[in-house]
């Protein structure tokens, strides 16, 4: 068992309706499965979480500040902080 903190930003936060959430995981959990479960819980996030790390991506997902490449390579063991931010450009 481990606890993963998920933080939502900008319009992802609007969609989730909360700034952050803590999720209990039962043993090592692939990030993609974790995000699928998150999308089930927060219905409005579902379209946002599709197509990660493709040109159609709507959000950027960071695990402890880094984007796992590919997303399927990441396994959560508890204690991680996940940031979900809108895809942006600028600077």
């Amino acid at each position: 068992m481990g606890k993963v903190t998920v933080k939502f930003y900008q319009d992802v936060r609007d969609a989730a309706g909360v700034p952050s959430v803590e999720v209990e995981t039962e043993g090592p959990t692939p990030l993609t499965l974790f995000l699928n479960n998150l999308a089930e819980r927060f219905e409005k996030l579902k379209p946002m979480l599709a197509n990660l790390q493709t040109e159609r991506a709507a959000v950027i997902v960071l695990v402890n500040g880094r984007a796992p490449i590919p997303p399927s390579s990441a396994v959560l063991v508890g204690g991680e902080e996940i940031s979900i931010l809108p895809m942006v450009e600028g600077g």
Binding site: Q10, R56, A57, I60, P86, M87, V88, E89
Partner: peptide, 18 residues
């Protein structure tokens, strides 16, 4: 492009949080 829509709302400062 999703990012282009965010720039409409936030401008170049859209990346501040990221």
């Amino acid at each position: 492009a999703h990012g282009a829509k965010r720039m409409q709302r936030y401008g170049t400062a859209a990346i501040h949080t990221l």
